[in-house]
C-alpha cells in the first residue's frame, strides 16, 4: 500500500491504496466523493472528468499514485455552499440532463472549456469540445445550450467585475 496525498476541493486529504488503484476509485471509495462517475471504463465517455492542477482529465485513466501531490477539483467542489456554480445553474435552467449520469463529467468539462476559451464559445466549438463526453439521453442539444448560456453568463459576470 502506498500513501497518496491530494488537495481535493481545497482540503488536504490522504489515504492508502494499491499502486494500481485508479484515481476515480480513490476519489469515490477512499474519499467517499461519489459525484465522479465511472461510465465506460475505456477512457471514452467522460463521466469521470475532474480537474487536476487546473486541467480537465479522465480520472479513470490515471492512477491515484500518479496524481499524488496534485490539486484536484471534483463536481462536489464547484458550488459555493447552496449557490450552484453558473454551469450547474445553466444545466438546471436549460434542462441539460435527463438521467444525470454523465452530468458531473459534462459540468466539469464545461467549466474547463469556458476557462480555456475565455467565455468566447460558439456552438461548433462546444460540440467539438464535447468529443470526449458521451450522453445517451439528451442528444446533446440542451447540453450545448446550457454550456453556451453559462459561458455568456460567466463572460458577462467577468466584465461586470472588471
Amino acid at each position: 500500500m502506498t500513501k497518496v496525498t491530494l488537495t481535493v476541493n481545497g482540503r488536504k486529504v490522504s489515504g492508502e491504496c494499491e499502486d494500481r488503484t485508479l484515481l476515480v476509485n480513490f476519489i469515490r471509495e477512499n474519499l467517499g466523493l461519489t459525484g465522479t462517475h465511472v461510465g465506460c471504463d475505456t477512457t471514452q465517455c467522460g463521466a469521470c472528468v475532474i480537474h487536476m492542477d487546473g486541467r480537465s482529465v479522465k480520472s479513470c485513466t490515471i492512477l491515484a499514485v500518479q496524481a499524488s501531490g496534485s490539486d484536484i477539483t471534483t463536481i462536489e467542489g464547484i458550488s459555493s455552499g447552496d449557490t450552484l456554480h453558473p454551469v450547474q445553474a445553466a444545466f438546471k435552467e436549460n434542462h441539460g440532463l435527463q438521467c444525470g449520469f454523465c452530468t458531473p463529467g459534462m459540468v466539469m468539462t464545461a467549466v474547463d472549456m469556458i476557462r480555456r476559451h475565455g467565455g468566447q464559445l460558439d456552438e461548433q466549438t462546444v460540440r467539438n469540445e464535447l468529443e470526449g463526453n458521451i450522453c445517451r439521453c439528451t442528444g446533446y442539444h440542451n447540453i450545448v445550450k446550457s454550456i453556451l448560456s453559462a459561458a455568456d453568463e460567466m463572460g458577462g459576470a467577468k466584465q461586470a467585475a472588471e
Partner: peptide, 9 residues
C-alpha cells in the same frame, strides 16, 4: 488528437 481531457495528459 482524441479529446480535450486526453490532450491534457
Amino acid at each position: 488528437i482524441g479529446d480535450p481531457h486526453v490532450r491534457h495528459m
